[in-house]
Amino acid sequence: MEWLERVTRLRRWTRGGERDPHKALLLLYAIGQLQRTGYKPIRFRETEQALDLLFAEFGPPKLVGPALPFHHLASDGLWEVATGVGGPCPGADRELLIAGDVHGRLAPAFAKEMLADPVLMAQIVRVLLDTNFEPSLHMDLCAAAGVMPEVAQTATVAKYVEGGLPRSARDPMIRQKILVAYDCRCAFCGYEGWIGNSVIGLEVARLRWWAFEGRDDMSNCLCLCTLHHRLFDKGVLGIVGSGKIIVSRHFVGTTDASRDYVLDLSGRTVRPPQPGFAKPDVRNIDWHTRQVFRGPPRRSG
Results as ranks from 00 to 15, higher is better:
132 N>F: 12
101 D>F: 01
67 A>Q: 12
284 N>I: 03
35 Q>C: 10
226 T>A: 15
11 R>S: 08
98 I>A: 06
44 F>C: 05
6 R>F: 00
111 A>C: 06
55 F>G: 03
9 R>C: 03
3 W>R: 10
204 V>R: 10
75 S>W: 03
86 G>V: 08
29 Y>K: 02
246 I>T: 08
218 M>D: 14
267 G>Q: 08
230 R>E: 12
68 L>F: 04
192 E>T: 15
87 G>P: 01
117 D>W: 10
227 L>A: 05
40 K>D: 04
110 F>Y: 05
143 A>M: 07
58 F>T: 05
123 Q>R: 14
12 R>C: 03
65 G>I: 01
203 E>L: 06
157 V>P: 07
86 G>K: 10
265 L>A: 09
163 G>Y: 07
131 T>L: 11
80 E>V: 11
45 R>I: 13
293 F>Y: 00
7 V>E: 04
274 Q>F: 05
86 G>Y: 06
65 G>H: 05
140 D>P: 02
298 R>L: 11
242 S>K: 13
59 G>I: 03
260 D>M: 10
165 L>F: 05
64 V>E: 12
48 E>H: 00
277 F>P: 09
107 A>Q: 06
194 W>K: 11
255 T>C: 09
28 L>M: 09
229 H>S: 10
118 P>M: 15
227 L>C: 05
279 K>P: 08
152 A>C: 07
158 A>P: 08
186 C>R: 08
249 R>F: 02
156 T>S: 13
272 P>D: 13
59 G>K: 05
189 C>R: 06
273 P>R: 10
278 A>F: 00
242 S>F: 05
56 A>L: 12
231 L>E: 03
197 N>V: 07
29 Y>I: 00
35 Q>A: 11
102 V>H: 06
226 T>S: 14
130 D>G: 08
86 G>Q: 09
90 P>N: 06
248 S>Q: 04
64 V>A: 10
104 G>C: 01
120 L>N: 09
98 I>R: 12
93 D>M: 08
68 L>D: 06
109 A>D: 13
254 T>N: 13
167 R>L: 04
184 C>W: 08
116 A>F: 02
4 L>Y: 00
152 A>S: 13
213 E>W: 03
127 V>W: 03
288 H>P: 00
9 R>T: 01
266 S>W: 02
49 Q>W: 04
159 K>Q: 12
191 Y>F: 15
192 E>D: 12
171 D>A: 09
271 R>K: 07
198 S>R: 15
24 A>N: 02
40 K>Y: 04
31 I>R: 03
75 S>P: 02
47 T>Y: 09
16 G>T: 12
91 G>P: 11
122 A>G: 15
271 R>E: 14
119 V>F: 13
224 L>C: 07
42 I>D: 09
245 I>W: 01
260 D>K: 13
18 E>C: 09
100 G>D: 08
93 D>R: 14
6 R>I: 04
110 F>V: 14
57 E>W: 07
289 T>G: 02
67 A>M: 01
183 D>V: 14
207 L>H: 06
70 F>W: 06
47 T>S: 12
225 C>F: 13
280 P>E: 10
58 F>A: 09
